[in-house]
Design a protein around this nucleic acid. Structure first.
Length: 417
DNA sequence: TCTGGGGTCCTAGGACCC
DNA sequence: TCTGGGGTCCTAGGACCC
């Protein structure tokens, strides 16, 4: 059996842990740049704040309804997530961390212990030790565990845990579940399915295998099997990332190439740091720049470009150099840029390095990067930078409602007190 | 004025091989 | 008049997830 453990309104719940005045009142957490709503308490949902709502459009509503607003604080959420998973790991060795607030557990040979009781205990321990409320769905496949979790969330009388252990329960659930709420069926697929008269999850399982395979590829077919109770998706091991991205929207638009160049360089450096952290190298760097797609008064421009690097590298200097090369090829004067990013790909493990016959990255780089990483970890992120990065932090992200880093920065807490 | 960021997997089609 | 058959690898784009 699989269990899906999902933290309720995770970012909001994290804010509430250290600020009890936020309990039972409407709270929302905003995306980077305080752009849009990405987490809502149940009270905020009831007030009609949609997921993804643009913050500026709801400013008035926030004030009128007394909704507490927070900028996202990923240091806090990441740390709380680790705390939750450390507890869950004591309940089974088979665990897949699916996202910052969700994980799958697999139970093998747990026959003598009723799983719903076991999961109620687990849920209780998480709540008691971290103050994070969760819901648990238990079923024979991952997709059905998602369905069971959905049920646990929707019906409070279940006290956060739902066990789907018979075919009667499975069928009843799938008759109830709307097609667009099925895990793996997004906007596009549900639109096509509804046009065919498929409105409930059960109807999807009634389509023929051939039809599903033809229309929705093996991905759709796998999902169908999973909903039928045939497990085809196993737990996945944590693997090195295949792409690593650092992208940001700017606080306003910029036309100056030097400014964009500095941003791209810093994004490239951040990607290089992430690469070294997972002990990988890359051989491809993608650079993109966009104008503001919401502003139809301004002329739009958006381009991205792939630049291949002749040798695998994770050096700030090299990745920044090729990223700048990419920017030079796509930057056009006269547009108002709002967003840019760097993505590295062609990732291979550091120790499997394939040398290039003709050129290679300068031998000194590995040593320089190790030294930079050491100093930066001791004195703070990006204290030591490339000269092509801004020395003083000229850019800023709007973060007008940031909570303190309660769990990771004790000096900030002391200042508040 | 203002609208996020970071991932995965699959398929089709082009370029190449013998 | 008339031009094969069977592969692999790579990439872009589209779908999905949180």
């Amino acid at each position: 059996m699989y269990a899906l453990v999902d933290c309720n309104n995770f970012y909001v719940s994290c804010e509430r842990v250290f600020n009890p005045t936020l309990r039972r009142v409407p709270v929302v957490v905003l995306s980077n740049n305080d752009g849009c709503v990405i987490s809502r308490s149940s009270e905020a949902k009831k007030l009609g704040i949609p997921m993804g709502a643009a913050a500026f459009e709801y400013q008035k509503k926030f004030q009128e309804s007394g909704i507490k607003v927070f900028s996202s604080n990923y240091a806090l959420y990441g740390d709380m997530s680790n705390r939750v998973y450390r507890i869950l790991q004591n309940y089974t060795p088979d665990i897949e961390i699916y996202s910052i607030d969700e994980c799958f557990l697999h139970f093998n040979n747990f026959t003598d212990n009723p799983l719903d009781k076991y999961c109620k205990k687990l849920r209780q321990e998480v709540l008691q030790k971290t103050l994070i409320p969760t819901c648990v769905g238990i079923a024979p496949t991952k997709a059905l565990a998602k369905v069971a979790n959905h049920i646990a969330k929707k019906f409070p009388e279940l006290e956060g845990v739902y066990l789907m252990d018979t075919d009667e329960k499975r069928i009843k659930a799938l008759k109830w579940l709307n097609i667009e709420d099925v895990w793996g069926i997004g906007r596009r697929m549900s639109k096509r399915l509804k046009a065919k008269g498929v409105n409930k999850a059960i109807q999807f399982t009634e389509l023929s295998d051939e039809y599903v395979r033809k229309e929705f590829s093996v991905v759709g077919l796998r999902l169908k099997k999973e909903l039928e109770g045939i497990s085809v998706l196993g737990l996945e091991e944590v693997q090195a990332k295949k792409h690593i991205a650092t992208t940001r929207s700017f606080d306003t638009t910029y036309t100056d190439k030097e400014y964009i160049k500095e941003r791209i360089t810093t994004f490239a450096v951040t990607c290089a740091e992430k690469l070294r952290k997972q002990k990988s190298t890359c051989q491809l760097v993608t650079v993109f720049i966009y104008t503001n797609r919401f502003n139809d008064q301004q002329e739009q421009y958006s381009r991205s470009i792939n630049v291949s690097i002749p040798y695998p590298t994770n050096s700030d200097i090299e990745i920044a150099k090729y990223a700048q090369k990419g920017l030079n090829l796509i930057f056009k004067q006269g547009y108002h840029y709002k967003k840019a990013g760097v993505i590295v790909g062609g990732i291979t493990p550091e120790h499997e390095k394939q040398f290039n016959l003709f050129e290679d990255e300068p031998v000194k780089h590995r040593e320089i990067m190790r030294t930079m990483d050491q100093l930066n970890s001791k004195y703070g992120t990006q204290k030591l930078k490339l000269a092509s990065q801004a020395l003083d932090k000229t850019w800023k992200m709007r973060q007008e409602h940031l909570s303190p880093n309660y769990t990771t920065k004790w000096n900030e807490i002391l200042e508040i007190r």
